[in-house]
């Protein structure tokens, strides 16, 4: 516990990262199941029951089943990792997450050799989530990763922020964090993880494939059709906050560029 990423990864992390305040991180959220306003999740997500919680792990795994939250956490090394968080809407934060590597969970389930992708699903609870009454997206929220992305040491499952239990608006009790991809890939409040051999359908890609690709790696050279991705504004700078340049793979190029070495990233968005 308490290990910062600087200790385990290269120079990209040597750069000083100034974490956002707990207040910023927990008051400015996109979690459309609770409403589309940035303040809606903080206002309404307390309605979500997070105890008990379990994740169904199925598909191409040796040990499928419903894993309770306690079973998942048993024996996991929870550590703090300070990651950049870059939203597709061109704002960013720096978040000190607490969690463990997704690989550790997948290994426990026993990934079979023909698995190529991992699909994730967020809880869908109309009684607790006022936002799902509107067809903003095709609920439940779905996301997916290629298996090598999922097994990458940077990819984590977060259960806390600043050493505290993760608040509901940030995806309690357990969420994905993939720091080199746009924030919407880091799916919240996960109830299902499925190993498959085909590329899973993902919510934003289903809603608008031209704007939200399956990969959605942070890339300053490929604009979103409606805005530039070359720059971003870090949350918390007030009314006169300056824009800062967006880094390739959100600053994790050294660690992850190899995953995409044969791909044209202007096509595989």
């Amino acid at each position: 516990a308490g290990v910062t990423v600087g200790a385990i990864a290269g120079p990209a992390f040597a750069q000083e990262l100034e974490p956002n305040s707990y207040e910023d991180i927990t008051s400015y959220n996109n979690y459309y199941e609770f409403g589309t306003d940035k303040g809606d999740p903080a206002r309404y997500a307390s309605a979500l029951t997070t105890k008990p919680w379990s994740i169904k792990i199925d598909g191409l795994v040796d040990r499928p089943g419903d894993y309770s939250f306690d079973q998942i956490m048993e024996g996991m090394t929870v550590e703090q990792r300070i990651y950049r968080f870059r939203c597709v809407e061109a704002w960013s934060m720096v978040v000190p997450w607490d969690g463990f590597e997704l690989k550790d969970l997948l290994d426990r389930a026993g990934v079979q050799s023909d698995a190529k992708y991992v699909a994730f699903e967020t809880a869908y609870r109309p009684d607790e989530m006022r936002g799902v009454a509107y067809p903003v997206l095709d609920w439940p929220y779905r996301e997916g990763l290629r298996l090598d992305e999922a097994m990458h040491p940077l990819t984590m499952m977060a259960t806390g922020i600043y050493g505290k239990t993760i608040p509901n608006q940030n995806g309690a009790p357990i969420r994905l964090v993939v720091p080199w991809k746009y924030g919407f890939k880091s799916i919240k409040s996960i109830v299902r993880i499925t190993l498959t051999d085909t590329q899973p359908k993902t919510s934003w890609n289903m809603a608008n494939a031209r704007e939200y690709g399956f990969y959605s790696n942070v890339n300053p050279e490929v604009d979103h059709p409606r805005w530039t991705q070359a720059t971003e504004r870090k949350i918390g700078g007030g009314l006169f906050a300056k824009r800062q340049p967006t880094l390739m793979f959100n600053g994790y190029e050294k660690e992850v560029a190899d995953l995409y070495r044969d791909m044209d990233l202007s096509k595989f968005i």
Binding site: S27, R233, L239
Partner: peptide, 15 residues
């Protein structure tokens, strides 16, 4: 409000 924190963590977009 935007200048004094009343519009939340990202006052520019809010304004």
């Amino acid at each position: 409000s935007g200048a004094t924190g009343g519009l939340g963590a990202e006052p520019i977009k809010a304004l």
